[in-house]
Design a protein around this nucleic acid. Structure first.
Length: 374
DNA sequence: CAGGCGTGGGA
DNA sequence: TTCCCAAGCCT
């Protein structure tokens, strides 16, 4: 097969892309408004998140926090509860910080240049370009995973797309191309094309309007581009959660620290072990709370009532849940532990691993794994 | 700046 | 099962 030395011009790329988009553009909930608050909310939610999952959270978020003022004055607890299950929880905390900052410093208004937008916490190059174009019509190209894949294929870029120099090369091409179109249309077209046509797995290049100009297609490198470094194997961690049922209807929950997975989310009191291991009596010594008048189980045995696991982006968590029934519960030091009514536990935000357990029969009825059929 | 940060879906 | 990766950002 004759290999052509193709090189698509920015103007031609822009023209073909927009023609395709007029017939294929997606109709998504957050496209109905150019209000920077709503654009911001949608873009933060959609960071590393699939469109289908993001839709639910977008509606929920705007129902609970319809304006930036309401968001700014909301308790963090409510924000995290609204975010529960979406992951990457620092996104929510950064939004809270930025909402408070803008309300206090700028009457709740967003700045209107990409430079100022980029300085806000939680807003990086992608989100700044998205708000600048979708809300203010400014010609800044968005560069996300879709766009990196699309452009690296079109230009036949074989260097690692995670390298800043590679991103810069792609950005320079896009900054020329966006000049030939309406910026917000160009950006939306880029992402729609990347998501619908120039897919990661096996793109259908037979129907692609860019294939004539696409270097990866012409050189039969579609499956090799984009080039990306393989990720490290997951670190395994073993978490032991204590489900403490006190006779007076209280239980203990614990707030996680920042700078770790699930920052500031809640969990059942946790003991972590370095290896796979079943907790014994000695393992409870030195805890920051005391369990007195323990009835069942006997002190020598602590029954494992449920097991589960969850894969995170860099770790695999093995969760073991232990049921302890006690007469009385005291917190003996001022710690990250909270004594709460068992029925109000669901008001707090938990990682999926824990919230699943709390919704299960093991938590509500004390049924063991065998009894609950898991 | 390389590594850390969730969850869900598809191949 | 295992792997990839999805509208990224922070440190």
């Amino acid at each position: 097969m004759l290999k052509m030395n193709v090189s698509v011009l920015p103007a031609r790329f822009s023209s073909e892309l927009l023609n395709w988009w007029l017939e294929h553009k997606r109709d998504l909930p957050w496209k109905k408004s150019t209000d920077p608050y709503k654009v911001w909310v949608s873009e933060i939610i959609l960071q590393q998140t699939r469109v289908e999952q993001g839709k639910k959270y977008f509606d929920r978020f705007l129902t609970v926090f319809p304006t930036i003022d309401i968001l700014a004055s909301a308790p963090e607890e409510l924000l995290l509860k609204t975010w529960e299950g979406l992951g990457y929880y620092n996104r929510a905390r950064n939004m809270h910080f930025t909402a408070k900052y803008l309300v206090e410093q700028n009457q709740g208004a967003f700045p209107t240049t990409i430079q100022e937008l980029s300085q806000l916490k939680g807003i990086g190059p992608y989100t700044a370009a998205a708000i600048a174009s979708f809300s203010f019509g400014l010609p800044h190209p968005v560069i996300d995973g879709n766009v990196l894949r699309l452009i690296s294929r079109v230009l036949g870029i074989t260097s690692d797309i995670q390298q800043p120099a590679t991103v810069k090369e792609i950005q320079q091409f896009l900054e020329k191309a966006i000049e030939f179109a309406v910026p917000e249309d160009f950006n939306q077209a880029l992402m729609d094309f990347g998501s619908l046509q120039c897919t990661p797995g096996r793109p259908n290049c037979q129907v692609c309007v860019l294939s004539e100009y696409c270097r990866a297609f012409q050189e039969e490198k579609t499956t090799e581009i984009p080039v990306k470094k393989k990720k490290q194997p997951l670190v395994k961690r073993y978490f032991h959660f204590l489900d403490i049922e006190c006779e007076d209807g209280h239980t203990l929950i614990q707030q996680r620290t920042s700078g770790e997975i699930w920052p500031r989310l809640f969990q059942l009191p946790l003991i972590e072990t370095a290896q796979e291991y079943i907790l014994r009596k000695e393992d409870f010594d030195g805890l920051m709370f005391s369990i007195t008048g323990q009835t069942t189980p006997a002190l020598s045995t602590y029954p494992l009532i449920a097991k589960s696991s969850q894969v995170l982006s860099h770790q695999k968590i093995y969760g073991n849940f232990y049921k302890l029934k006690v007469n009385k519960l005291n917190i003996i030091k001022n710690t990250d532990l909270y004594l709460v009514e068992r029925e109000k536990v669901s008001k707090f935000a938990f990682p999926k691993l824990v919230s699943e357990y709390i919704r299960s029969n093991a938590y509500s009825n004390g049924l063991s794994m065998a009894e609950s059929g898991e």
